[in-house]
Design a protein around this nucleic acid. Structure first.
Length: 317
DNA sequence: AGCCGAATAT
DNA sequence: CATATTCGGC
């Protein structure tokens, strides 16, 4: 598996993303919420039973070192100014020359794309109000002159947990009767999000809700809580829509599923956390939460390393 | 025409 | 499987 990751096209030069970085930072888990480094994913008994080599012990030093490598790799060409800034934050030892993101047995591929990988972000100039009228950044649009824009199909949208949360918020706010794709799309106010995107997601979401209605009586699946905390169930009956939805959405999930996915990558220059994958099926078999994001099959070490990298990225803003 | 939702396609 | 696209109805 080639694990090269670069985000050159993201331009880690953060000039004009007011609020975007912090918005993302808010979505990041606290370091304390990450599984402890000492924690193993599988018990010693299991690993020996199945001939699985247990992960070597790692320290925070390892994390920092891997993080630094990753970070410089992500940046592509080193920028001395930023590097200094970074070095101010953490004292790194100097060694380089690896392309692996997180060195180790099963490196984490942050860009599932593969060889011709280019993570595409679609940005439309669609009018929006909230958040202070930022114009579409020309650097953001993929190389589409109006010609190829028609030719190339729209890129597959990935419903990140952030996006999904936003979706649920809005749907809940609207109530069942008013929750139609167009309205949802408008209220979500996510740049580049189309009505079709929402319609498709809404269809799946309704199916989920329906399916959940039936099962909720008996033994609660261990995955129930992933939804249970969302206000959905409550608003199913109130047809009028929820007046104090702010108060309601403030009630956060008591349990933050530990997941690591592209969702944790800083959406530099990507206003609302929209992410698109260039090809459809890139999933490794992993446990997933409802919005399809993998979680749980990454080692604590990788968790920490990724977290550290993101933190560094955010620091540069 | 434009939107919605179910069915179907990728 | 997740998301996109199609299609009939309104």
């Amino acid at each position: 598996m080639g694990k090269e990751v670069r985000i050159n096209d993201y331009e880690v030069s953060g000039e004009d993303d007011d609020g975007r970085a912090t918005e993302w930072e808010a979505g990041l888990p606290n370091v304390d919420d990450l599984p402890p480094l000492s924690q193993f994913l599988i018990s010693p008994e299991l690993s020996s039973a199945f001939n699985i080599t247990p992960e070597p012990h790692r320290s925070m030093i390892d994390v920092t070192r891997a993080s630094r490598k990753t970070f410089s790799a992500l940046r592509g060409q080193p920028n001395q100014h930023l590097l200094d800034k970074l070095n101010d934050f953490t004292s790194f030892s100097d060694d380089r020359g690896e392309e692996m993101v997180v060195e180790g047995d099963e490196a984490v591929d942050l860009t599932p794309e593969g060889s011709d990988s280019r993570k595409l972000r679609r940005v439309d100039s669609g009018g929006d109000d909230g958040g202070g009228g930022e114009e579409a950044d020309s650097a953001l649009r993929a190389d589409d002159s109006s010609e190829s824009a028609r030719t190339s199909k729209r890129i597959r949208l990935v419903w990140t947990p952030q996006l999904h949360r936003r979706f649920v918020e809005v749907v809940t706010h609207l109530g069942v009767k008013n929750a139609v794709p167009k309205t949802i799309m408008q209220l979500m106010n996510v740049e580049g999000l189309t009505r079709e995107n929402v319609a498709s997601h809404l269809q799946k979401y309704r199916l989920y809700v329906k399916r959940m209605q039936g099962i909720s009586k008996e033994g609660p699946s261990p995955f129930d809580h992933l939804f249970a905390s969302t206000p959905v169930a409550k608003s199913l009956h109130d047809s009028g829509g929820n007046q104090n939805w702010h108060a309601r959405v403030l009630i956060q999930m008591p349990y933050q599923p530990q997941m690591v996915s592209t969702a944790y990558l800083p959406p530099v220059h990507n206003s609302a956390g929209l992410e698109y994958h260039s090809h459809p099926y890139n999933s490794i078999m992993q446990p997933k939460d409802w919005s399809g994001n993998s979680f749980g099959s990454i080692s604590p070490y990788q968790h920490h390393a990724i977290h550290s990298v993101i933190h560094h990225c955010l620091l540069l803003e």
